[in-house]
Amino acid sequence: MKKIKIKGKSVEEAKGHGLKILGLKEEDVDLAIITEGKPGVLGMFGGEECEVEIRQKISAAADAKEILQEILNRLALVAVAEIVSEEENSVALDVKGEDLGKIIGKDGAMLSSLQLIVSSIISRDFSRKIYVNIDAGGYRSNHEQALCRLAKEAAKDVASSGIEKALPPMSAADRRIIHMALKEEEGVTTYSEGEREGRRLIITPKK
């Protein structure tokens, strides 16, 4: 999201100056006044400048895509970010190109890092929590399917045996996928326990 905080003698002046710096037109932006400012004596002395914030009007998905693309470009990777879907609080992006191995990283570490950074930036830009999902070469969707299979099988065991089961320690993102996958599952509920790297998901029979 292009945005700028800028001061000027008047709101109009600050706005005009800011738009020029951003290279945007008035209809492309939202304007918020931070301080009104005060006119000085004879309009010259002792006045206070006003300050405004100018923010580009953009959807969360378009903003996320732009940020990811900027990062990929700066990494000198031959890859293009695309929007897959956009919902109220989540955005899904896909990366296509040549350097997918690098973008995925060891055990998906690079994808997770990119995802966290882009999510944080977007959530800040829009002042609410927005989850950004980034996939490359189907890595994440394959991984997600494998997790769901594992979860469903474990849930079946728990439901039939009545004995709760702990899954291996996983990242918050992976645990979230399983919580969601088993939300509708009959006969079981899920929760997490443990700290940091050791935090794991427990599937337990519903009473």
Binding site: I71, A109, S113, S120
Partner: peptide
């Protein structure tokens, strides 16, 4: 807090990305 994140998560993500950039 913004650049470090909960349990240093954001700082570590930035390090992972930097490592990928330094890889070449």
């Amino acid at each position: 807090g913004k650049v470090i994140g909960k349990e240093g998560k954001i700082a570590n993500a930035i390090r992972t990305i930097a490592k990928a950039a330094g890889g070449k």
